[in-house]
Design a protein around this nucleic acid. Structure first.
Lengths: 125, 125, 125, 125
DNA sequence: GTGGTCTAGACCACA
DNA sequence: GTGGTCTAGACCACG
């Protein structure tokens, strides 16, 4: 059945993920300017082309906007920010549940296990 | 900045993970024989040495037993099976929560989101 | 009859044993750097892979720590050092007693013989 | 310093050791006939030449006697039996102490450790 | 430089 | 056939 193995996600997607998370978490706020392609390339030690591709990817999803001659900025469109936030959350959750089910864990067990970790900072009912 | 990018987990660990999950999920049952090193190497398209290393890893954790001249078998030791199952579960949960927190989601939001999938959707396949 | 003849311990375990003893005896001190994989391979006249395996084995037991790009170092964790020291001691003692019993020596004779060497001879060098 | 690794003791010496121990332990008694070279070769799954060499070795030490046309017998010379018994014992003890000292264990620690094993369990064989 | 992974192919021991 | 060990040589990531 199984085929080959992951040679890991492309760097430009890893970078996109990281930026998405920084935006969603509020580390990067609406209207914030992202580092220039060249700055980002240096600080992340990747090729500028790779950063370019990441920015293009993010712009395609609407979460950032490129303004010619000025730079790349986090969108201030709240709908897009909100839906991105929801989408990332749901992706994570779906993936998590998928994996847990594949390993044979039942819903109750998953929730019980999770509660164990979340309790202390959260609530339960 | 602190970190670069992941260059992916070693193949022998990816294989170990896969087998661990198959055992934990019951797809491979206690006493079952795993494919021989050579078979697995062919079907997974990796070098026999890499499979060997995987099997060795699994044996070190006690989840399988290798019998020279016979094959490699899923342990029938229930304690080890149980603790492996628990460990994998907790690893997944911890990782999930870690990621969610990094993205700025609060405990309540995580649990609410999860409940939607687990209770609302009856997300079984 | 039951058994054939020993075809000797694997090289990587012989090497591990030797290093374990050097650590336990204090010849290699906590924090000391072990020879690099390649150096050790040359000086021991074995393949670097074999040394790698030895180092990996030692790291799994916690007695050494490998730092990529830097080298392999004796742990400074005193608990691990102590328990390794105890384990090696007990292994030796158990084996010694096993052999002596197999040859038909009684406990009193063993202790008497030992005392001769330890107290009579002042067997220090 | 250290050179290469043991490719294990020659089989003829392993066989000699085993027979020496059987004699010293009384499993083979004075006057007992050892299996013929051919029998021993079959039962131990080694080459008859190897057995031959073992017997020659044992005869050189006086612990067995070859009688032309009759076979090989455990000596009935009590002096030789006794001194062999003592020699084997002392060899083991010396070696044991040597190893323990090399690993940095002091005399008191050795004796204390040994006592733990000898007094707790009593003896049996 | 360091350690870590992987492949290719060999040989051994067990059954 | 099985798993286990070893070598030779390559490439990668880290610093």
């Amino acid at each position: 059945m199984a085929d080959t193995f992951q040679s890991s996600q492309p760097i430009y997607l890893q970078l996109a993920d990281r930026l998405n998370r920084q935006i969603v978490s509020g580390e990067l706020k609406p209207g914030d300017k992202l580092p220039s392609v060249r700055e980002m390339a240096v600080s992340s030690k990747v090729n500028p082309n790779t950063v370019q591709r990441t920015y293009r990817e993010l712009e395609a999803s609407g979460i950032v906007e490129s303004r010619r001659g000025q730079g790349t900025f986090v969108t201030e469109n709240e709908d897009i920010l909100f839906s991105t936030r929801e989408k990332l959350k749901n992706d994570q959750i779906e993936n998590f549940i998928q994996v847990m089910h594949d390993m044979g864990y039942e819903n109750e067990e998953i929730q019980a296990g999770l509660r164990l970790y979340l309790e202390g900072g959260g609530h339960n009912d």
